[in-house]
Design a protein around this nucleic acid. Sequence first.
RNA 1: GUCCCCAUCGUCUAGCCGGCCUAGGACACCACCCUUUCAAGGUGGCGACACGGGUUCGAAUCCCGUUGGGGACGCCA
Length: 478
Amino acid sequence: MNEKAVKTRFAPSPTGALHLGNLRTALFNVLLARRHGGTFLLRIEDTDRERYRPEAAEALMADLRWLGLEWDEGPGCDGGLGPYCQHDRGGIYAEYYRRLEESGAAYSCFCTPRELELARRAQRAAGRPPRYPGTCARLSADQVAARLEAGERPTLRFRVPPGREVVFEDLVHGPQRFATDDLGDFVIRRGDGTASYLFANAVDDALMGITHVLRGDDHLTNTPRQALVLEALGLTPPRYGHMGLMLGHDGAPLSKRNGSRSVADLRGEGFLPEAVLNYLARVGHAYEEDRLLDLDRLAAGFDAGRLGAGPSRFDAVQLRRWQGEAVQAAAGDRLQAWMGVDDGVPADRIAAFVEAIRPNVLFPAEAREWAEILFGEDPPWEEEALKAVREAGPEMFAAALAAVEASGARMDAITARVKEQTGTKGRRLFLPLRAALTGRCSGPELQPLAPLMGPEGVARRLRRARRVAEEDAGESAC
RNA sequence: GUCCCCAUCGUCUAGCCGGCCUAGGACACCACCCUUUCAAGGUGGCGACACGGGUUCGAAUCCCGUUGGGGACGCCA
């Protein structure tokens, strides 16, 4: 792309939570703008009063901010081309509707939803494509006036010119060509006077100076309609790039059932924004670098020409992989806040605690489990751990206890003593100790864990293990 | 039904104008190494050009068809 000023946008409709699929298109538009030093605009497409949810727009913006996807222009960030909520743009649209009506490019349609539905059903049944039959396309001015007089509330329909071809160059698909004869006349203004998507979205892109739009493949066939509207208005359309949709892990459209989650869900689970971003940036786009990249580097490596045309599937395993990278890379104090273990970990040991468990946790919930294991009074046993302790026998823990009395909570002293007195080594040495101290067979390195628990904590756990091992010995003796 | 899009390892993908591909990487998986445990790390392995025709000296790469998936055809966006 060599255009001077690239301007992209994200234009969600506030009908619900921001989901992974939408977020990905937002991300790519941010990346494209940043890559070229351009601007990224946010526009709220809230023309549908039926589905509009007032809190959704705020939530959406909060989600974008959480991810670091700030907009250069949009709500709360006036660039002189607002307003940026379509609900507030009715006055602007009115002028363009007037022009379309005047030139005959649009006409009033009095068909009711019921009639239209019936017509569509009949067409389908007859094996024909369901398209507006043109019932109102040739109403005379008098007829229209009379029906308006009678109180009918028509929609405004765009008159698709017959026998033409609309051609455009898609950023990811290359040259595209559509016959207007395959397009039915479509509604550009609802009966209640609000603007429909096909109209508002296209007009606003042009009015707001958008140069590039990256959107889902599902919009590819909308493009010729939008191009026609803009052409009739003498406005310049942006260049479009339609990327393959992100599907669920089963290949079906993304839904709750097959992996789709909202940004709010992800945040609630403890996903780090950079993990989400790094994952999504690689779905439908490839990076040379397969390590965690910040937004600037993600932008630097972004190339709209490398966007995939084919669909891709959501994969939770890969998302988790990036989460792992993000946790390892995060600064200690941020991780501390993220873990939220201030209540369960003594203040003077919290920093060391964070570093000790960092390699072994993906989510705050796991951090809290480790806090409970290390600092709780009576941490729970895992079955395998209990087994390991019983098999080890009480002598091992007695020896460990002696080491703690002599040298404190030091793993090296403990293992040396136990090895010396019982002759165990390797897995048979470490596993029972790990089990005794943590109640688990796997986890963070023991070396830094012991000092965190302190001599008292270590001793208490060793006594508990010895007791359990003794009970077991007694039982077997019977 | 009409129109449109897509098709490389299990997943994300590299492969853009055909030869440098006995198809590369990452994640996952498996094995080994390392570490007196688990994990991390290191090394290696498993593993794909949907199918059928063309074009060509030569095709994953170009063309056609088949199959499969997706989308649009809404007073949703």
